[in-house]
Computed example of a mutant assay.
Amino acid sequence: MQFNQINIGETHIRLTSDLASHNLNEYIFSIRQDLKDYILKDNDFLLSITPLDIPDENLSEIVYRMFKSSIICDVGPMACVAGTISEMALEYLIRRGSSYSIVENGGDISIVNDKKLLCGIYSNNRVLGNGIAFEIRKRKRPLGICTSSGKVGHSISFGDSDSVTVIGKSTSVCDGLATAIANRVTGITSEDKVMNALEFCEDYREYFDGGLIICDENVATVGKLPKIVETNEFDIKH
């Protein structure tokens, strides 16, 4: 198993893969350049916090996916950027024959795994700490796991969650939904905050498999999640 870090501009990827040679850094540089070229033409794509109409023109794959995912999730296109890069990077590795790869891009993860693995849930919650993980069974199809927080990290969030994690087939969509759901973790009490987020989730159930919302002393799940196990953050296995 090969372990690599790829740092290109704002993209910081930690990669575990069964491929010894892949040139993923060149591919990521290419799709990032496609994105940068489009932003130079349309600065609203960079700055908007609400969805934009897809223009009637030929778009690069990364730009098109970000448009589409942001419309599904009712967020700005850049809310989906990390998940989209992670998703496209994993697809690139699969095309080259990978059956076990983990692409983690700033907390947004794309996985294909032919053996079981643990994926840590880092919320810094005062009760749970960072001591739980998803147990991901071996699978042949890609899986996206994306997390947003109102308290941790640099991403913009209008909510007050310790963490919101969304799991589904598309990492691009899960990234946008994690942001959208985390934005709804609002209210007077932590119970109110979680319930408001859960209510919002119901309108988006067709787009994700499951979600985990952690806010102060309240934890809620929606949909179907992998088994959650206790762990030490230093025991996470790839």
Results as ranks from 00 to 15, higher is better:
Asp34Met: 01
Phe3Tyr: 11
Ile72Ser: 07
Tyr122Trp: 01
Glu230His: 11
Asn196Tyr: 02
Asp56Leu: 04
Glu217Ile: 02
Glu61Gly: 01
Ile132Asp: 05
Tyr207Trp: 09
Ile8Met: 04
Thr221Ile: 12
Thr171Val: 12
Gly223Asp: 13
Glu135Tyr: 02
Asn7Trp: 05
Val185Met: 04
Ser157Tyr: 10
Leu117Cys: 12
Tyr64Phe: 09
Pro51Ile: 08
Ser190Asn: 13
Arg139Thr: 04
Thr16Asp: 13
Tyr204Trp: 02
Gly9Thr: 00
Thr147Lys: 09
Gly176Val: 05
Phe45Ile: 03
His12Asn: 15
Lys41His: 10
Met88Gln: 14
Lys140Asp: 15
Ala182Gln: 04
Ala180Pro: 04
Asp235Glu: 10
Thr16Pro: 04
Gly187Asp: 05
Phe29Asn: 14
Asp160Thr: 09
Thr11Ser: 15
Gly210Leu: 07
Met1Val: 10
Ile214Cys: 06
Ile228His: 00
Gly129His: 09
Glu26Ile: 05
Met195His: 01
Ser17Trp: 02
Glu217Gln: 09
His154Gln: 10
Ala89Cys: 11
Arg32Ile: 06
Ser101Trp: 12
Ile49Tyr: 13
Cys215Asp: 08
Ile188Cys: 05
Tyr100Cys: 12
Glu61Asp: 14
Lys237Phe: 09
Glu199Val: 01
Ile121Met: 11
Asp34Ser: 13
Tyr100His: 15
Ala79Thr: 09
Asp34Lys: 04
Val75Glu: 03
Arg205Lys: 15
Glu233Lys: 07
Ser172Thr: 14
Gln2Lys: 14
Ile181Val: 15
Leu47Gln: 06
Asp209Ser: 15
Ser148Val: 04
Ser163Met: 13
Ala180His: 07
Thr165Cys: 14
Gly168His: 08
Val185Arg: 00
Asp114Trp: 06
Val75Tyr: 04
Thr231His: 02
